[in-house]
Design a protein around this nucleic acid. Structure first.
Lengths: 211, 211, 211, 211
DNA sequence: CATGAATGAGCCTTCATTCAT
DNA sequence: AATGAATGAAGGCTCATTCAT
């Protein structure tokens, strides 16, 4: 057997990335450690040299993702430039980018076999996300573009509504065509929740690039 | 080694109910068939006499629950008496009753180990629920109490927002006190999404019993 | 694969006996469950159908042996016929029979790799054995053939001395020749410990058959 | 990743002492090499630089202990001053000191998980111990204080009896109170085995310090 | 309708040891 | 003399499912 020696961090990252991919492909329970090590070309013992258990590996993967997401949305929220709506667009845009970057993470995540991971992520991502929205809502109120009575609940509802709307997407086959209409509808609803002047959300959308 | 003979349906129901309880208690994967049969006091073979596989059993459990829910909310939606808001209150009320009846089903369901079941139920309950909401929204529009542009998306957003708000509940410790405020806030937000005259939702709430 | 069905007790005994043999041959740690099941011709699952773990199997084996031994020596002690010395000879004789019957159990047991089992057995056999000796010593005192001040300690010392003497045996190569001398010496020593008239033990030995 | 360089013997001793402690604490099989090196703060390779295998390490530990014991009891036996009984007391006293010095070695050693070590030590310590006793018995015969027919067997029995009596100790809870009686009883029995005038052993005990 | 012994693939994990650096 | 990444055989155990009775 050829013995390939790598530095600790490099190998660790290799395992993390390979496992993330395989977990998303086949699901956590359906991915034996055996498969992970064969894919990389290392021995069983090597795997356990880096992670005490398969579950600890999952936790590490999830934690990395959570950290990444939390850090980014916090940064986007606390940026100086941009009003509340612009920032919301940016946060929302980031999530879409993430979904694409993670090779259709969202698609995979919505499969039953990944319920485990889905759950773990959602549970940890939602709180910081709600925090960001609360801050953005408060900013929007100060700026006079939002009219909200209950910031916290509004944030919760907003996140929930967004999820509900995106889940709806997953059902339809010909997404392309519908998308345009969906987006306009979604913006209308977000606008209502935030007490924004009618049509304002759409105007922002038109102005913004990459949305 | 006592051989207890029961009628087909009785035994089947016994298995279904025992399994539902155990799945919720320990999670699906962590509940061996062994445990189910010991709890009931039947043999392995008997189990497989009624269900081809453990997974089919889960499907059966979920389907029963789904059927129950779907039928009820359809009935509540299609009832002659009551305007759109009243019916929405009824549907929402039904879900709360359900949660209590299933012995804090929702609490259990929000534990990580039940992600599997949670997922299956949510995936199947959401579409009919959205359908009901679409119909109620259309009714409300006709009645002139709702002002909604995109009924389908609004329904999706409404269901999502409701879930988001109720999930938020699960975090807080002293639920009792907060509840009142939460409800008022939620109604405010639902009212916005549905384009209802401000304060109208709260007025309905005051009039209705058991809400 | 041919599926051979046996009754619970029969199969259980089969596993117990096979495992006992293999444990003594190769040692507990060096006997994989795999080997046991291959020897019998059953599947892994079958093994775990009868014993929750490999260790539980060992406990069962040891317990059976202990029970057998304890019951027998109690019976020999409480028999009506025979004075204290005769009974001691019988007990001692039983142990020798046992050793032979168990296919040189004692030899195996004195190998390092069986330290585990040896320990477990010794720890459990000694107390009832000491109890028996205490009773026999008291009987002998009543019969006026023993002269003992401290029955309990004498019992402990007797068991220890016997073990010490028999351990000594295991060192020597040409056992046959030495045996006669060893026995006479041992009897002399036992006689001293028990405060028996000099030569009396040897007289008993001559009279007894099969010793 | 600090590289601490030590002299060969110092490091070797460090490993030996750490391993001895860990083996007694957790048992040989339950102490991975990993634990030993982490405790010391060295790398895997370093360990194998000093010992070819884990088992060789155990042998080294046991050998050191054996050597120490063997040398000491030989010295005590061959000393000019003191008659046979006095010397026996000294040997016995040394064993007790040893037990205390090794931080309740005997307690640990009587736990099942240490059967392995117990066995190895006993097997190697007994022969030289018996040799010493043989010599002491011969000395006692010459001095006219012992009356023994079979020196070798008597030695074996004596060692066995001593062990039997001390094992008995391990059972009782309130050792303190019983000890005095136990010692007197033990001396009575040793006296019988050695053919010593009644009461002589106790007289020696009274005269000796620290016993 | 019921029993429960039997199956066996497959899983996670451990750990003594090797070897390139 | 020291490091620590890499090895891989081996082991105990789980559990959904089958099938003879």
């Amino acid at each position: 057997m050829v013995r390939v020696v790598k530095e600790y961090d490099e190998r660790r990252t290799e395992i993390l990335e390979t496992a993330e991919r395989l977990f998303l492909e086949h699901g956590y329970d359906e991915t034996p450690v055996e498969l992970i090590i064969k894919e990389i070309g290392i021995a069983k013992g090597t795997f356990y040299h880096y992670f005490r258990s398969k579950n600890e590996l999952l936790d590490a993967i999830v934690d990395i993702l959570i950290d990444e997401v939390t850090t980014t949305i916090k940064k986007l929220t606390e940026e100086k430039e941009g009003d509340a709506i612009v920032k919301m667009f940016r946060v929302s845009s980031y999530f879409r980018t993430l979904a694409i970057g993670k090779e259709r993470l969202t698609d995979y995540i919505h499969e039953e076999r990944n319920a485990h991971i889905h759950f773990k992520i959602e549970k940890k991502v939602t709180p910081p996300l709600v925090d960001c929205y609360i801050k953005l809502i408060e900013q929007g109120i100060e700026e006079g573009i939002f009219n909200v009575k209950y910031p916290e609940e509004t944030a919760l509802a907003l996140v929930g509504a967004a999820e509900g709307l995106s889940e709806g997407h997953h059902e339809h086959a010909n997404r392309e065509k519908i998308d345009q209409r969906k987006i306009v509808a979604a913006l209308d609803i977000y606008g209502r929740i935030l007490g924004v002047r009618e049509g304002l959300m759409t105007e922002y959308m038109m102005k913004m690039e990459g949305y």
